[in-house]
Amino acid sequence: MQISDNKVVTIHYTLTNTDGAVIDSSVSAEPLAYLHGAGNIVVGLESALAGKAAGDKLDVTVSPEEGYGEKHDELVQKVPTENFSGIETVEVGMQFMAEAPWGQQPVTVIKVEDDGITIDGNHPLAGETLQFAVEVVEVRDATQEEIEHGHVH
């Protein structure tokens, strides 16, 4: 069975950056199952998997545009330390949900200074070219419930 919309696809993958450093991998864990065509994975990888079948192995390079997008400087800003009242210690790398004009926005602390805390609302992999080594483990028809909910059950 070939990968197409409304198929549940199970893959093993290793994600590396352009320097070859491993960012994430399912190899020593459970494989990733997703609903093809539902936007559950980055568009560049989903496009490359279309038409593949169980047993296929492929290496896929995903540009920022087809991955997590370009980095947007306007999503990096310094905010008053008071915005973090009630939090004992704020450290670089911590993630929080912030209120943005469009709703909740995850942000990452990138700098802590006496006069404020710099946060970054970009996805941590924004601006990165992603390299995936993928093995398709299984392809099956999605259930009607999975299609209606937009994800694998």
Score class of each variant (00 low, 15 high):
A54F: 01
P106D: 03
P31L: 09
P106T: 03
T143D: 04
Q95V: 07
M94N: 11
V139E: 00
Q104Y: 03
Q105I: 06
Q144N: 12
V76W: 00
K57N: 11
Y34E: 10
G69N: 11
T16C: 13
D56R: 02
S85Y: 08
E138L: 11
A100F: 11
H151Q: 04
V60L: 08
E74M: 13
G93A: 04
T16N: 13
V109G: 05
T129V: 07
P64E: 01
M94Q: 15
V60Q: 05
Q77M: 13
G116T: 09
A48Y: 03
Q2W: 09
E113I: 08
F84M: 02
V112S: 04
V79Q: 00
Y68P: 09
K7W: 00
A38I: 10
V92G: 01
A53T: 15
A142S: 08
K111S: 07
D24N: 14
A126W: 14
H12R: 12
Q105T: 06
T89C: 06
Q131L: 14
H36W: 06
E88P: 12
E30F: 06
T81C: 05
D114Y: 09
D120T: 08
L125H: 13
E46S: 13
E135A: 09
A100I: 02
V22S: 08
T16A: 15
A126E: 14
V134N: 10
Q144K: 15
G67D: 07
G150Q: 02
H36L: 09
Q95D: 07
A133I: 06
V139N: 00
G67A: 07
I11M: 02
E148T: 01
K71H: 13
E65F: 10
A54I: 01
S25F: 10
Q77N: 07
I147M: 06
L35R: 11
E30P: 01
T10V: 09
H36D: 11
A100R: 03
A29Q: 13
V134R: 11
T10A: 06
Q144I: 12
I41D: 03
L15Q: 05
H151N: 01
M97P: 04
Q104M: 05
G51Y: 04
N122A: 14
K78N: 07
A33L: 07
H72N: 13
T89E: 15
H72L: 13
P80L: 14
H12Y: 10
G69M: 10
E70I: 09
P106V: 02
I147S: 01
G150V: 05
T118D: 00
H36T: 08
A21D: 13
A38Q: 12
V112E: 05
D141M: 05
V152I: 12
Y68D: 12
A29K: 13
D5I: 01
M1K: 01
T81D: 09
L125S: 11
Q131W: 03
